[in-house]
Structure formats: C-alpha cells, structure tokens
Design a protein around this nucleic acid. Structure first.
Length: 395
RNA sequence: GGCCCUAUCGUCUAUCGGUUAGGACACAAGCUUUUCAAGCUUGGAAGCAGGGUUCGACUCCCUGUAGGGUCACCA
C-alpha cells in the first residue's frame, strides 16, 4: 500500500483560529497513525487579503501547539504550475475564456471558466457517508482571473493532485465546494482523494465562530495561559470521542485513540468553561516545578508580589484564635520554614486554620492567594521568613 | 430563496431496536476548621414534532420544524 498524504491548507488572511487548529490537529493525528506525509500549504492566491504577518501567525501558532509538518509550500511560488494547467484546459476545451460585463469595481472583462459538463456527482465522505449533488446549478465556475491568477478551487485541486494528497480532511464549510472541485479534478485528470468533512465549531449562540464572540485566535489562548496540550485535547473532544470515558489525553494518547469514523456530524459549541477544566487537569499532571512556575507567572502582578505589605492585625487571626496563640504558631512555623512536612504535621496538631491562615496572611496580606506552601516556594524561604517575622513584630 | 449537512440534559457526548437513557463540563446543596483553588457527597437536568415499519423505537423510513454550511473574479 502506498503512503498516504494529507495536508493543511490555510489562507494567510487572518490569524489562525481554533477551528483551523482543530482541522490541523485532525490531519496531524491521521498522519501520525497512518505514517502519512503531512504537508502545510499556504494558500495565498488572494493577493489582496493575504498578508505576511498572518502567515507568521499561522506558523507561530502551529509551532506553539506542537503541530509539525513534513513539508511547507506556498501557492504564490507555484504560479507557473497553475498556468500550465490552465493552458492545457484551454487547449483541450475543458475551460474557456469568458467575456464579462463587470458588475463591480475591479472585476475583469475576461475571466477563465470551467466548461461544466452538467452532471450528477456523488462522493463518499468518511464523516457523512455518500453525498450527492447535481452540478447543473453551479454553472460554468470561474477557475482563474488570468493565466497567472488562479482562483482557490483551481489551485487547491491542482496542488492536491500534484502533491498526491490521498485524504482531504477539512471543515464542513467546504462540503458544498466539493462537487465543483471534483469537476475540476475530472477536467485535469486528477484522482479523487478520500474526503472527510469535519463539523464546524460554533459560538455559544450556535452561530459561526467569529471575532465578536471573543478570543478565537490560537495565540490568544496561549497568552491566556492555556497549555497547548490542553487546547489540543479539548479541540479533539469537540466533535470526537473515543467511545470510552477518558477525557484527558496527551498528544500521544490522542494519536492512539483518534478515529475519523467516530467524528460527530453536527457542529459543536465551544465551551470556554470546559476548556478551563481540561487545562486544569493538564496542569495537575505537570511536574511540581512547572506548576509552580505557572502559578508564579499568574500571580506576578498581584500587589503582594510587587510592593510592601500592609497587614491588618485584625485579620491575621483565624476566627477566634487569640493573638498570643497566633504569634506562637507563626514563631513555630518560622523555625521550621524549610520543612513542609513538619509544618503540616504541626498544623494538623494545632488546627490547620489556626496555623495556616495566619501564615498565608502574613505572606500576602491578601484575602485570596495560593496556599502558604506554594507561596513559600515562590517567594523563597528568605523572603518568606522576612515577611513572617514582620508580622510577628506587629502582633 | 435553491442545494447540501445536521438534530439526546444549558454545553460536549454514550447508546450499533429491548437501558431506571450513562459520563463529563456547568449549575445547586452539603462536607472537609488552609482563603481561593482543589477534593468528596448528593441533586436537578435530555431523546424537536407528527406519521409510519416493528411484538418493541432515541435508535430504521417519510414529512414538517429548527440550526448550520454554501450559492464570489474569498479561501
């Protein structure tokens, strides 16, 4: 059996969003489990809207997420190839130059159209089963503005053919595009790939996900502290499940468990809350040092990390604990500060609240903060000692 | 509007004709005298509607309804 080839074909007309990442992920998982070649193809045939910064964002997002490719191509580097095909189609009569009356600003007077054979087309979709279309209603679709300017459908089909793509795994928005692309495939004598159209990710109101629904760009999730493996894990769960009750997966586990055939047909709403939960589960599985680093970053802007503490001595006692006792506890903790186990067993003897609350309060002066042990780890024993000492003096 | 796709708790989903329709997130209540977080316990919460097929339908078929996609010289 010859090797499978899949591709991710984004256009650099915006930042990579979570829907695109999910498509990339499904292709990646498929590639890994089938030992397939995975190609990244930047589809920048729209010269107006394609921007280098978006291409950089695409690359940066994939790198952060850990989605890797075997090859990268850019369609604007392959214009000669498309021109060759267009000439051939013009020659053999499967396409023709069409005289137009421009309806809008910027439209051409001449455009190249595919001669539509007007027939019924059926194809099998791995997710949806057999799908049928009558291409008659499509008319003669525009495939290029000129020899040098192919339109999406043409360039996409030519590249899939030239690159030997065996499986086209893409978003459902392309389902209706498939028949016209098949028409082009037949015109250029390309073999049909196997299709898998995955359901869309929806906003909470079931509309298409867009900027106005908040953070949808992958990098925004990165900036928000979402772990890449957590985002991938959650994205995989949107529209797919392993048939077991496992919900937390590493990338390796996803590669093992993933199955295109188990993909849901309907669109799925993106639930930020569940993403947060998945992220939390992944954080819990990280080594302790890394967890501390994450926490350190997340509290770096808290007042108690940046400036002098102002302790309110009415708050340092846990409930009804007498001040003298609180002082005693603090002094004891001060003497064993480097030993978490010893502090813990002392706290268990004396009452956790009695001991641990004042310690935490002495360290931060804040109503809410991480627990005292984490704080000591982040602040360091020296700084922690200083703070506790200062609190003792004020009691 | 035409064409295409879809339809189980608020959300993501399990169920391959026979189940008290299961799980997770979220939510509510309670527990745990380390705040927050976490953890634990408990709870409420679903088969879009109408017809068939069948001894029996959430599950198969039809119709309707709803949602989504697409109908570009964007991808």
């Amino acid at each position: 059996m010859s090797k499978s080839v899949v591709r991710m074909a984004p256009s650099p007309t915006g930042n990579l969003h979570i829907g695109g990442l999910r498509t990339a992920l499904f292709n990646y998982l498929f590639a890994k489990q089938h030992d397939a070649k995975y190609i990244l193809r930047i589809e920048d045939t729209d010269r107006e809207r394609s921007k280098p910064e978006f291409e950089r964002n695409l690359l940066e997002s994939f790198e952060w997420a850990g989605i890797t490719f075997d090859e990268t191509h850019r369609q604007s580097d392959r214009l000669e190839l498309y021109a060759k095909y267009i000439r051939k189609m013009l020659d053999d009569g499967s396409a023709y130059v069409s005289k137009e009356v421009p309806q809008e600003e910027g439209q051409r007077e001449e455009v190249i159209r595919l001669k539509n054979p007007n027939k019924k087309i059926a194809f099998d979709d791995l997710v949806r089963g057999t799908v049928e279309f009558d291409t008659t209603e499509l008319g003669d679709v525009v495939i290029a503005k000129s020899l040098e300017e192919p339109v999406f459908h043409l360039a996409n089909v030519i590249d899939d053919h030239e690159m030997g793509i065996t499986h086209v795994i893409r978003g459902e928005e392309h389902l209706s595009n498939t028949p016209r692309q098949i028409l082009i495939m037949e015109a250029i004598g390309a073999k049909r790939p196997i299709f898998a159209h995955i359901p869309l990710i929806l906003a909470p109101d079931r509309s298409k996900l867009s900027k106005r629904h908040g953070a949808v760009s992958v990098i925004e999730y990165k900036n928000r502290g979402i772990l890449p493996q957590a985002l991938l894990n959650y994205l995989a769960l949107l529209g797919w499940n392993p048939g077991t009750e496992q919900e937390i997966f590493t990338l390796e586990e996803l590669i093992k468990a993933f199955d295109l055939k188990k993909i849901q047909k309907g669109g799925a709403i993106f639930d930020e809350k569940k993403l947060e939960w998945v992220n939390k589960e992944h954080i819990k599985r990280l080594p302790p040092e890394e967890q501390i680093n994450l926490l350190r970053k997340s509290i770096e802007n808290e007042p108690y990390m940046k400036s002098e503490l102002h302790l309110d001595m009415n708050r340092i006692n846990w409930k009804e604990t007498p001040k003298e006792e609180t002082k005693k506890h603090l002094e004891k903790v001060l003497s064993i500060i480097g030993n978490k186990d010893e502090i813990m067993s002392y706290a268990e003897r004396e009452g956790k609240g009695n001991v641990l609350w004042p310690v935490r309060y002495a360290l931060t002066g804040a109503e809410k903060s991480p627990d005292p042990f984490t704080l000591i780890a982040i602040l360091g024993t020296e700084e922690s000692k200083k703070r506790i000492l200062k609190a003792i003096e004020q009691i």
